[in-house]
Computed example of a mutant assay.
Amino acid sequence: MSETQYWYNTETGQVEEGRQSDWSKVMGPYPTRDAAQHALEQARARSAAWDAQDEADR
């Protein structure tokens, strides 16, 4: 039995239960619907942290 995975569709802004859309339109998989819903926020936070680290390394 497999666990349900959730995907965030960047085109529609909707969470999909199981990957339903083309890979180029989704982020994931995520273990929960809530985690998938916040995918863009998580990605922005990671990018900001990496940018800050790059700046500190210069």
Score class of each variant (00 low, 15 high):
M1C: 05
M1R: 07
M1F: 10
S2E: 04
S2D: 08
T4Q: 14
Q5T: 10
Y6N: 03
W7K: 04
W7I: 02
Y8Q: 09
Y8L: 14
Y8C: 09
Y8F: 15
E11Y: 10
E11V: 08
E11G: 08
G13A: 07
G13Q: 08
V15Q: 11
E16T: 04
E16R: 12
E17M: 12
E17D: 06
E17W: 07
R19D: 04
R19S: 10
Q20T: 10
Q20A: 13
S21F: 03
S21N: 09
D22R: 15
W23A: 14
K25A: 12
V26E: 09
V26W: 13
P29I: 12
P29L: 13
Y30E: 07
Y30G: 14
P31A: 15
P31E: 13
R33G: 01
R33Q: 11
D34V: 13
A35C: 05
A35N: 08
A35G: 06
A39Q: 01
A39V: 02
A39C: 13
L40S: 06
E41W: 10
E41R: 13
Q42A: 14
Q42D: 09
A43Y: 01
R44T: 04
R44L: 05
A45P: 01
A45W: 05
A45M: 05
R46A: 11
S47L: 07
S47K: 14
A49P: 00
W50R: 11
W50V: 04
W50I: 06
D51P: 06
A52C: 01
A52S: 01
A52I: 00
Q53T: 05
D54A: 06
E55D: 08
A56Y: 04
A56F: 05
A56V: 01
D57N: 10
R58E: 04
